[in-house]
Computed example of a mutant assay.
Amino acid sequence: MNWIPQTIRILIMLLGGYFSYLLLVWFPILQGGPQGSVTNLVYLVVAGVLIGYVISKRIELTLARWVEQWVALLVNLQPKRVMAATVGAILSLLVSVLLNNLLSNAPFYHWGFSLLTTAVLAIFFIFFSLKNSDFFGSFVANTTAPKTTRIPNPKILDTNVIIDGRIIELLQSQFLEGTLVVPLFVLRELQFLADHADPSKRARGKRGLEVLEQLHSITTLKVLDWNDDNIKTVDDKLVKLAQELHAKLISNDYNLGRVAKLQDVDVLNLNALATAIKARYNAGDIIQVSITKDGQQAGQGVAYLEDGTMVVVEDGAAFKGQLRNVVVLSNIQTNVGRMIFARTETN
C-alpha cells in the first residue's frame, strides 16, 4: 500500500495551504491592502503547503500505519456482516423517527433525549443484526461467498500436517477431539502431488492420501466441498474457511500460524506440541537425586524426581539414602509414565 503515505502527505500539504488561507480571513491586516491581497494570499498558501510538507515527513509513517490497519480490517470484513450492520442502523433510525415524533409533544422532551434514544436503538438493532447476520446478510445480492454447514467442534487439517502423519498417533491417544475437516482444495493438492513427475513430491502426495485413509478408518473425517474463487492461495483459503466455520486450524506451517492468529483463528501446531512434551532431561544431563531403594537388578538403585518420574541408577544401591549426582543415560516413555536410566557420576 505505497499509495497511502503519498496520499497522506498530499492531504497534509493541502490542509497547510487551507489554514494559511484562513489566516487571511481571520486576520484582515495580513492582506496588506487591495493591491497586495492576492500576492499575500499566494505567498501564505505556498508557505502553508511547504509547512505541511515538512510536517508530513514526521507523521506520515505513523498515520500510514494506522490507515493500513483500518484498510486491512475493512478488507477482511464479511459482506453479510456489513450488510447486517447496515440493516440494523436503518431500522434503528426508522424506529427513532417514529418514537421521537410520538414523544415530541411530551413536556419532558428534549433534543438530548432524541439523541439518547437514537443511540440506544442503534446499539440494540446493530447488535441484533450482527448476531443474526446469516439472515440479514441474505439481502446482499449476487454474493460469491461459499456456503458452509454446521460442523460440531471442527478441526481443519493443513496439507503439511496430513503428510506429516503424526496426527494419527495424536488421535489414537484421544488427545484430539471434534470433527476433522479436509477441504476439497487440500485433497486436490494432495492428488496433484501424488501425480507429480518429481519422485519426492509424488511420494509426499501418496503418503498424504494414505494418512487420510487411515484417519477415515479411525475417526470422523469430513471432506468439505468449499472454495472461494476470490482467494488465490491455499493458505488464505484455509484461514477464510476457519473463520467461516469458527474452527481451529491444525498446521505445522509457522508463518501460516502467525497469519492465522492475527486474524483471530486458533492454530494447533504439532511441532509446538512435540516441543512442549519433550523429555526434560536428555542423555548426558547431570541431575541430583536421592536414592531411596534398591532396583530390580542387582546393584541398581531407584530414585524419584519431584514430578514422580522414576530414575533407575546403575550401581546406585550402594548409595541408598544418599543425595547423589547422576548422569542421564536414556529416557523411556511407557504407558504408565516416563522412566530415566542413569549412572552415578564419577569424579
Score class of each variant (00 low, 15 high):
S138F: 06
I163K: 01
D164P: 04
I167S: 01
R150N: 14
F139E: 08
T148E: 09
K147Y: 13
R150S: 15
D134L: 04
G165E: 04
K155W: 06
I168D: 03
D158H: 00
D158L: 00
I151R: 06
K147H: 12
I151W: 04
G137A: 05
T143M: 11
F175S: 13
T148I: 13
A145L: 15
S133P: 07
Q174I: 10
T179W: 05
F128V: 08
D134E: 14
G165H: 02
N153H: 14
D134A: 11
L130G: 04
I168M: 05
K147S: 13
T144W: 12
N153T: 13
F175K: 14
D134F: 02
I167T: 02
S129C: 09
S129Q: 06
G178D: 07
I162C: 00
F135Q: 08
K147M: 10
L130H: 05
T143R: 11
G178M: 04
A145K: 14
T149A: 13
K131Q: 12
F128H: 10
N142M: 13
F175L: 13
Q174S: 15
L171R: 09
Q174R: 14
R150V: 15
I163C: 01
R166D: 03
I163A: 02
S129M: 08
F139Q: 10
L171H: 09
D158K: 00
E169T: 11
K155M: 08
R166F: 07
S133L: 07
E169H: 12
T159I: 06
G165D: 06
P154D: 04
T159Q: 05
N153K: 15
I168W: 06
L157M: 07
N142S: 12
D134H: 08
A141V: 15
F136W: 09
L170G: 05
Q172D: 12
G165Q: 04
T149P: 09
T143L: 12
K147R: 14
V161K: 01
K131P: 10
K147E: 14
S173R: 12
T159C: 07
N160P: 03
L171V: 10
L171T: 08
T149M: 11
E177D: 13
L180A: 02
F128G: 04
G137Y: 00
R166W: 08
P152R: 14
K155P: 05
A145Y: 11
L130R: 06
L171Q: 09
F139C: 10
I167V: 11
L180D: 00
G165A: 08
R166E: 08
T149E: 15
P154G: 06
P154I: 04
I167W: 01
G178V: 05
F136S: 03
L130S: 07
F136E: 03
G137L: 02
I163G: 01
S129N: 05
R150Y: 15
F136M: 03
S133D: 11
F128S: 11
N153A: 15
I167G: 01
N132V: 00
K155Q: 10
L176I: 13
T143D: 14
L180I: 03
L157S: 03
